[in-house]
Write a protein that binds this DNA or RNA. Structure first.
Lengths: 222, 222
DNA sequence: AAAGCGAATGACAAAATTGTCACATTAGCA
DNA sequence: TGCTAATGTGACAATTTTGTCATTCGCTTT
């Protein structure tokens, strides 16, 4: 069930919407002001945020920026058509805009549309407890980010794109280094394997991810 | 029309296969030995390589490794079932194996299958003359590789994932730096924009890719 | 035209990456 | 078992990345 965060200081409206959206199969949480909303985005990790631009505490733009930074889609609620034109003109990165007053059905249809559009963007590769967001170029173990250097990332990607295959040392050296026309020591690969293991493996002394295939090369275990 | 490179020293077989594969809509080039094959992979950039393991000059494994390094799929031809078990056991990274003697129709069906499988892997983002292979984490202008540092790559990816949107400085700082909990100077972003422009723009004095939106932030022009 | 502001730039130091040693360890084999 | 070749390790120098100045540049508004 998708979780929606409603950022709105009119508590009567919050209650009405929460009720209605529940019947439509959404789970709602709410925040009355900018600081609460920012905290809630981090803590609740909602699938989508509905933001009223005109908040008593802070303003909706900052909430929008924060949500976008976390990859959470945003729909703006505006009090009037005038406000709406300002917002769309500035294009703060919201995924949609809807002007009050709106029909609840319309809101639901907009929500579904944004979720459909944004949920398709999962360009992720998962292997055991490791996760690579190829869209952003980030690597995680669980929800802990792992920082790989540019070359480490490229080497790891090559392994991921050839999961299970035994890759020869020559193949790996070619892929990561030879493409630039440089020739590096054979040991350089060994060292990079060590560095990858230190960052990626549970226990780098006992590698279960990148296995050595003696006399041939290495293999990323599925 | 797909181009196939046949690495085989039995010239009678080469001729027969070339004829047959032409009628099936493939363009064939051939190489008789390992050195010629390696050169042909670089020069001809075939869509697929057929390799006979038992060559008079050199061996098929090296050809396979070179092709895989260039991202070109490989089908091995083996003289006997025994050889085949050796090859599959070692898993040199070939995309398929076929034992002689084989029916031409079978070969064609295997070729089509491999091409279908491998051509689907294009996780590429293209913008003007720039191309990002998100699967490998590489950036090109034309066929010239551009080396981005890890942070530059992340920043560029964020722009690419939000093409056309005006992104505020705060949003960008959050996305690239705040996720690690660090706080960096506002000017750091400016400097990174400059560095990205130097690497990505035709003329960094006159940016057409990453535009400044005065008072707000930046925008990646579609 | 001058002032004021945000953005761009060049230069810089600290930190990280990168490639290579020399040496240690290990696996496979005689 | 002990030998040998292959792989792993810690340390290192060179280079690149990274973040921050101080300063300059160029719009906008007086």
């Amino acid at each position: 069930m998708e979780k929606l965060l409603m950022v709105e200081d009119d508590s009567a409206l919050v209650q009405r919407l929460t009720e209605y959206l529940s019947t439509e199969g959404f789970h709602c949480v709410s925040a009355g002001g900018q600081p609460q909303a920012v905290a809630a985005i981090d803590a609740e990790r909602p699938d989508l945020v509905l933001v009223d631009i005109t908040l008593a505490e802070g303003n909706g733009f900052a909430v929008c920026a924060h949500a976008r930074g976390k990859g959470v889609p945003v729909i703006f609620l505006t009090a009037s058509g005038d406000e709406l034109s300002t917002v769309t003109g500035l294009d703060m990165g919201a995924d949609d805009y809807i002007a009050k007053p709106f029909r609840p059905k319309e809101l639901v249809s907009r929500i579904r549309s944004v979720l459909r559009r944004t949920s398709g963007n999962h360009s992720e590769i998962v292997l055991r407890e490791l996760r690579v967001d190829t869209g952003k170029g980030l690597v995680f173990r669980g929800d802990q980010q792992i920082f790989l250097s540019a070359l480490e990332y490229r080497l790891f990607m090559f392994f991921l794109n050839h999961r299970g295959q035994i890759l020869t040392r020559e193949q790996l050296l070619d892929e990561i280094w030879d493409s630039a026309g440089e020739y590096v020591s054979d040991n350089t690969l060994t060292v990079y394997i060590k560095r990858l293991r230190e960052k990626l493996e549970e226990d780098s002394q006992d590698p279960r991810l990148i296995l050595t295939v003696r006399g041939i090369g290495y293999q990323l275990k599925e």
